[in-house]
Design a protein around this nucleic acid. Structure first.
Ligand SMILES: Nc1ccn([C@H]2C[C@H](O)[C@@H](COP(=O)(O)OP(=O)(O)OP(=O)(O)O)O2)c(=O)n1
Ligand SMILES: [Mg+2]
Ligand SMILES: [Mg+2]
Length: 646
DNA sequence: GCGGATCAC
DNA sequence: TATGGTGATCCGC
């Protein structure tokens, strides 16, 4: 039975309820039936109501985008714009670098297969790992539609024989470390991107051993299996984005080698769902679909509209995905890339102030412990809370001094929480940003030459230190044996300095990317770093109705007065010259004609400045490539409340 | 600097 | 009955 036809459910809501992890490896037989069961099980819950609201908001946002599109294309000569975009494509094509062999490795059903090592009798059975929410499922369970992020009670409905296992993070860390250690034999620059995946640039290794990429990757995968009894899949391609997409192609326990050829790559991308592109999630998938873009190839078809709506969609990002162009710089995570550290906890909704403060205190203690053992202090504290309606809010406060003590974390959290009361919350969290590294080897600038930085420093001045002070006093630095490693993957902390080349080579997309890239330029031929790509633009048409404050009731959220779209003079930014425009159609068209007629293109690209936020938006590269894997937080397995049986 | 959103794993 | 935790980034204010 069709869940949409048989009720007032919309297609988008049914799909949303099915979760973000659909379309992953391990196909299911009848997704419609699965979605029906999920929607059925969800209906009426607070979670469901919240999802429904989010879906409605998104639908409205799409309506605004379509309206904008209608206005933008009215009377415009699309052919002319297409020609212009074709020129941009030629420039982008020149960024293409096929010289490096990049491989992305991703462990198969990672948590599940690690569990299998400890309990082989589960082999071949449908089982999942997690708690109330499933972290991952065995491939047998996936056939039933069980997947990451799904609540266990729904998974049970989909697969009554499903075996639910609790997590053992120490085990996953252990295996993860083993695997990464193996991978580093083939390229010490391994870029870990999560606990179960990472990138290698095997170009030098291939040369030295006179191997083909396929042979080499088979060998690596064989070795991983031999030494861990775990299977891994891999993708071989000229850059990280493509390699990641490819590693999914022959999952599980397979590999895929993309031809290193411009046309072959474009063909490959042509049919590919845009949702497969790292950075395009459920929301952006829907937004793009609304303007006809479902595959990467559709980007080309709709290039004129995407050009006109560059602010909403990010033309250059999309063109790169269409072309299959992305960064190929593989480098390890560095400790100083960390931006925040936090802890949060979900519990049955609480309304009493005392109960909430108790939770806050627990979270503060846990955060203190983590900050202490990993060697960080920070000066901005952010409280996060989720109402029993599932609406999430954050409240932040920046301080003049460094904090990491539970008493102060708790005090600040309390201060941030009180104005929100009374309310009923199901989650409380604390996060600290503006970090300072207590383990940094002396002040930045001078790097240490030898040995792991022992904490030295005396300090111990207690109490608030001025943040201007460069040396980290305060925050007793007294961990020693406890260590258990820090939050950085073992390996090298700092390979060496190397000159930092501040001159970005970016054509136009400016911005960050590799401010610091220690190893890359040691190589004689530094891999081309394509500026990157970013979904960035979260298509914000100005009108995220600010929703009501947390204390207000859920349904009451009325779009606040003005600020909403519809105001006839939307401002646009001309993607050619970056000039701000008023979207009066005639003037917009005239302007575009003008820009197209003069050969302003090169000039614009050369001079593009920060003014242009959209195109700029840095590089999502980081999201899937530069992210180091910080060890999974080990926490004692939660007390198993034995179910009944008594 | 803050808060909401989106995304990945 | 019942929908996780950690960290990053981007955008508009
Ligand atoms: N929402 C999620 C997604 C993943 N994970 C954890 C469990 C996974 O085992 C691990 C790796 O994530 P993957 O996306 O690589 O998924 P799997 O390795 O489980 O399966 P696949 O074979 O598809 O890679 O991260 C999680 O806890 N919560
Ligand atoms: Mg995996
Ligand atoms: Mg993975």
């Amino acid at each position: 039975m069709d869940p949409v036809a048989s009720s007032q459910l919309t297609e988008s809501l049914v799909k949303r309820l099915a979760g973000p992890s659909t379309g992953k490896a391990g196909l299911a037989k009848d997704q419609t039936e699965i979605n029906r069961i999920i929607a059925e099980a969800s209906k009426g819950s607070k979670f469901y109501e919240n999802e429904k609201k989010k879906d409605k908001d998104l639908t409205e946002r799409i309506a605004r985008i379509l309206k904008l599109r209608g206005e933008a294309i009215e009377g415009v000569d699309l052919t002319k714009i297409e020609h212009h975009v074709d020129k941009i494509i030629i420039d982008l094509e020149n960024e293409r670098d096929l010289s490096q062999v990049i491989v992305h490795f991703d462990m198969d059903a990672f948590f599940a297969n690690v569990e299998l090592l400890h309990n082989p009798t589960l082999k071949g059975k449908p089982f999942s790992v997690g708690g109330g929410v499933i972290s991952t499922a065995s491939y047998e369970a996936r056939k039933y539609g069980v997947r990451s992020g799904m609540p266990s009670f729904i998974a049970k409905k989909l697969c009554p024989e499903l075996i639910l296992l609790r997590s053992h993070f120490e085990w996953y860390n252990e295996e993860s470390n083993k695997v990464f250690t193996i991978l580093r034999r083939y390229d010490p620059r391994l870029s870990a991107a999560g606990c179960d995946e990472g990138y290698l640039n095997i170009t030098p290794y291939l040369q030295k051993h006179n191997l083909t990429p396929g042979e080499c990757v088979e060998e690596i995968r064989r070795t991983v299996h031999a030494e861990t009894n775990l299977t891994v899949s891999a993708g071989i391609a000229p850059n990280m984005m493509l390699a990641k997409i490819c590693s999914d192609k022959n999952k599980p326990n397979g590999q895929y080698h993309l031809a290193f050829d411009s046309k072959a790559i474009i063909d490959f991308m042509g049919d590919l769902s845009i949702r497969k592109v790292p950075g395009i999630g459920r929301v952006n998938e829907r937004l793009l679909e609304s303007v006809g873009v479902k595959t990467c190839g559709d980007v080309y078809t709709h290039r004129a509209v995407l050009y006109l709506m560059d602010k909403q969609f990010g033309l250059r990002f999309l063109l790169r995905t269409y072309l299959g162009i992305a960064s190929n710089e593989v480098k390890p995570y560095e400790r100083n890339e960390r931006k925040s550290i936090g802890a949060e906890r979900t519990f049955p909704p609480l309304s009493s102030t005392k109960d909430m403060l108790d939770k806050l205190e627990e979270v503060a203690a846990e955060l203190e412990s983590d900050m202490e053992s990993s060697g960080w202090i920070g000066r901005t504290v952010t409280l996060k809370f989720k109402l029993d309606t599932f609406q999430v809010f954050t409240r932040a406060k920046s301080l003049n001094h460094w904090v990491n003590k539970k008493e102060e974390l708790f005090a600040v959290g309390k201060e941030l929480l009180f104005p929100e009361l009374p309310t009923s919350v199901r989650l409380i969290g604390l996060r600290v940003t503006k970090l300072k590294d207590l383990k940094a080897s002396t002040s930045e600038g001078i790097k240490r030459f030898f040995g792991p930085a022992q904490q030295a420093t005396s300090g111990s001045k207690r109490k608030a230190s001025d943040i201007d002070e460069d040396e980290a006093d305060d925050a007793s630095v007294d961990q020693e044996e406890h260590d258990s490693d820090d939050d950085v993957m073992p390996g090298f902390h700092e390979q060496d300095e190397a000159d930092i080349d501040p001159s970005q080579h970016d054509v136009d997309d400016d911005e960050e990317l590799q401010i610091i890239q220690p190893l890359a330029n040691i190589r004689k031929r530094p891999p081309n770093s394509v500026p990157g790509t970013s979904i960035s633009h979260q298509l914000t048409l100005r009108s995220r109705s600010k929703s009501a404050g947390p204390s207000r009731s859920h349904g009451a959220a009325i779009a606040e007065p003005s600020t909403t779209t519809s105001t006839p003079s939307e401002t646009h930014t001309c993607p050619i010259c970056n000039e701000a425009l008023t979207s009066n159609n005639t003037s917009l068209n005239e302007h575009i004609d003008y820009c197209l007629s003069r050969d302003a293109i090169k000039q614009a690209q050369g001079t593009s400045t920060k003014g242009n936020k959209v195109l700029s938006s840095g590089d999502t590269t980081k999201e899937y490539a530069l992210n180091g894997f910080k060890r999974l937080k080990l926490r004692p397995d939660p007390p198993v409340k034995s179910k009944r049986k008594g």
